[in-house]
C-alpha cells in the first residue's frame, strides 16, 4: 500500500532529513515509526500526505508514484489519507460534530449520510455525548480522540499519525493505540510515528526505526511483548 524506494528529502540546501529510505507496508498493516526527534519521522509522514515532495526516489501510495503528482491532484490524494496530529488541529470555533464532519463536507457527502457517519465515528471513540461541545471544553485526551474520529470518518485507505500520544498520559496513550489497532483490523493501512518506546513495548507491532534520516532497523514483531 505504501512503498518508499530510495527516498531522499533535503530541505533547501540544508541537511538531508531523509537519506535513501526504502520500505514497504502492506494493506491493513499497522506500522510504528520510531526514532529520536529530528530523525525524520515527521518528514516521512509529510511525504505520504504530499505536504512535502521527495528530493530523490519514489513514494508510492496505492501503487501510484505520488512524488510527481500535479498540484491540482493533491487534494484528491489527501482525501484518501486520514491524518492525526499531535496538536489535534481542531477548529476551536466549531463544535465537535462540525470538526468531525469537515472531511465529509470537503468530500461532498450529503447531509444525511454525513450525520450517520459522524455519529458512528464519535461512538467509535466514545464521545457520542459530546458532539455539541467545542474542543476547548474537552480534555486533551478527548480532543485527541476527536482528531482521530475526524481522521477516520471519511473511511480513508491509509491513516498516518504524528506523535498522536505525545501529550497523553500512559493509560490514555494505550487507549488511543488500541483504537488504532482496531482500525488496522478492518483493513486500514496505518503508519504511526512515536518516540514513546515504552508504549510500543506494551502495544507491539512492526516497527521502522529511523536514525538521522536513514532506516536503522525494521523488525517484524507483530504480537504484544507481554
Amino acid at each position: 500500500m505504501i512503498r518508499f524506494e530510495n527516498v531522499t528529502k533535503r530541505y533547501g540546501k540544508g541537511r538531508e532529513a531523509l537519506r535513501d529510505v526504502s520500505f514497504e507496508i502492506d494493506t491493513g498493516e499497522l506500522i510504528f515509526l520510531t526514532g529520536h526527534s529530528g530523525a525524520g519521522k515527521s518528514t516521512l509522514l509529510k511525504l505520504i500526505a504530499l505536504i512535502e515532495r521527495p528530493t530523490r526516489g519514489q513514494v508510492l501510495v496505492g501503487g501510484r508514484n505520488i512524488g510527481r503528482l500535479a498540484a491540482r491532484h493533491i487534494p484528491a490524494h489527501r482525501r484518501q489519507i486520514g491524518m492525526v496530529f499531535q496538536d489535534h488541529k481542531l477548529l476551536e470555533d466549531r463544535s465537535v460534530f462540525e470538526n468531525i464532519a469537515l472531511p465529509m463536507i470537503i468530500a461532498g457527502y450529503r447531509q444525511r449520510e454525513m450525520r450517520g457517519r459522524v455519529r458512528a465515528a464519535l461512538d467509535y471513540v466514545g464521545l457520542l455525548d459530546r458532539e455539541k461541545q467545542t474542543p476547548a471544553m474537552l480534555s486533551t485526551g478527548e480532543q485527541q480522540r476527536v482528531g482521530i474520529a475526524r481522521a477516520i470518518v471519511a473511511r480513508p485507505k491509509v491513516l498516518i499519525a504524528d506523535e498522536p500520544t505525545g501529550n497523553l498520559d500512559p493509560d490514555l496513550s494505550l487507549d488511543v493505540m488500541n483504537l488504532f489497532r482496531r482500525f488496522s483490523e478492518v483493513g486500514v493501512t496505518m503508519l504511526i510515528a512515536t518516540h514513546d518506546l515504552g508504549l510500543l513495548d506494551r502495544v507491539g507491532g512492526r516497527r521502522i526505526v529511523l536514525d538521522d534520516g536513514a532506516v536503522a532497523a525494521t523488525d517484524g514483531q507483530t504480537q504484544p511483548a507481554t
Binding site: 500526505a49 505536504i51 491540482r72 487534494p75 484528491a76 490524494h77 489527501r78 482525501r79 484518501q80 489519507i81 491524518m83 488541529k89 481542531l90 477548529l91 469537515l102 472531511p103 470537503i106 468530500a107 475526524r150
Partner: peptide, 12 residues
C-alpha cells in the same frame, strides 16, 4: 490550513 490538510481543493 486544516481544510487543505484534509484534502480541500482550491475551489472548495
Amino acid at each position: 490550513e486544516v481544510s487543505k490538510l484534509l484534502g480541500a481543493s482550491d475551489g472548495f
